[in-house]
Amino acid sequence: MAAIGVIDYGMGNLHSLGKALERVSGAGRVIISYDPDELLKCDRLVLPGVGGVRECMKELERLELNELVAEAARTKPLLGICLGMQVMLEWSDENGGVPALGLFPGRVSRFPDPPEDGSPNRLKVPHMGWNRVRQTRPHPLWEGIPDDAWFYFVHSYHAVPANPEHVIGSTDYGQTFASALARDNIAAFQFHPEKSQNHGMLLLANFTQWDPS
């Protein structure tokens, strides 16, 4: 029976993500674990996350899950969500600079603080709530999802990929930023599919069926 592994390093929205994957996985099993051996037996893996890249990398390395993610990136479908997307880049600017997993060339930068002009329309940091995602190029995970669909975001930092070919979705929040990345068997999304109602559930369902080989 096919299995989806959710990587548990103590910083993810594991309960709601696990339930969402169970709803869309059909006969597949969803395994939430921090055991690299158990996770490597799964057919596909999800790297979730909330918080900061420094703590994320610290915990991944402590649990030897950074090596697991690197192995999965070579061998099976791998999905990064929110912080799980950010940590897939090479570098984050937070805390004076933090090296990350390097699965995508590029860095993670903070949104600029809004000007203190008292304007009621000024954009706040973090970027929190619903926003549109523009599909910048086709990808199997977009199957059945309309362009400019709404997804739910919570983040203060955003990806700045070095290779524009890796960007499959972008979003506007004071500036245009990359909200979805993909290459080979890896895909990553800044928004939370598990909190994004029908479109998010369809994206997760597409991931459970994705065959990048």
Rank of each mutant, 00 (worst) to 15 (best):
A2D: 06
I4L: 12
G5W: 04
G5T: 02
G12Y: 01
L14C: 04
L21I: 09
L21G: 06
R23C: 00
G26C: 03
G26M: 05
A27E: 08
G28S: 15
R29Q: 14
Y34S: 11
D35F: 00
P36C: 09
D37K: 10
E38P: 03
L39F: 03
L40E: 14
L40R: 14
D43W: 04
L45V: 05
V46K: 05
L47F: 02
G49R: 04
G49T: 10
R54I: 00
R54G: 00
E55A: 14
C56R: 11
M57C: 10
E61P: 01
L63E: 09
L63Q: 12
V69P: 05
A72C: 10
A72V: 11
A73D: 02
R74K: 15
T75H: 10
P77Y: 07
G84V: 06
G84S: 04
G84M: 08
M88P: 01
L89Y: 04
W91A: 04
W91V: 00
G96L: 06
V98P: 01
A100W: 06
G102L: 08
L103M: 09
P105Q: 09
V108G: 06
S109T: 13
R110Q: 12
R110K: 15
D113K: 13
D113A: 14
D113S: 14
D117V: 11
D117A: 06
G118I: 07
N121E: 13
L123W: 08
L123K: 15
K124C: 05
K124Q: 13
P126S: 10
W130E: 09
W130M: 09
N131F: 01
R134V: 12
P140H: 05
P140Q: 08
G144P: 03
I145A: 08
P146T: 09
D147E: 00
F151Y: 08
F153R: 08
V154F: 08
H155C: 11
Y157N: 02
V160N: 07
A162T: 06
P164K: 09
H166P: 03
S170I: 07
S170V: 01
D172E: 15
D172M: 10
T176I: 14
L181P: 04
R183A: 15
R183N: 14
F189L: 14
H192A: 12
P193R: 07
E194D: 12
K195G: 07
Q197F: 09
G200Y: 07
L202Q: 15
L204C: 12
A205W: 10
F207N: 10
T208S: 10
W210E: 04
D211I: 12
